[in-house]
Amino acid sequence: MKNTLRELRAERGWTQADLSGELGVSRQTVNAIETGKYDPSLPLAFRIATLFGRPIEAIFHPDAS
């Protein structure tokens, strides 16, 4: 999965630590999601969507492959 988490976070001027605090996960986990190494669970994806006030599909996109 690709995602626009890094851009959304930058728009708000948050650090990874800020975002991890909001989501209740570690900073490393935020980084792994941003780099696309780790796809979050559905509950976590919904927390992200709610936090940024956007639907999940506006944040996460399936890989082209």
Partner: peptide, 11 residues
Amino acid sequence: MKDHGAQVHQR
């Protein structure tokens, strides 16, 4: 964003 609740929690 002053609150890092989750990290405080984890720590």
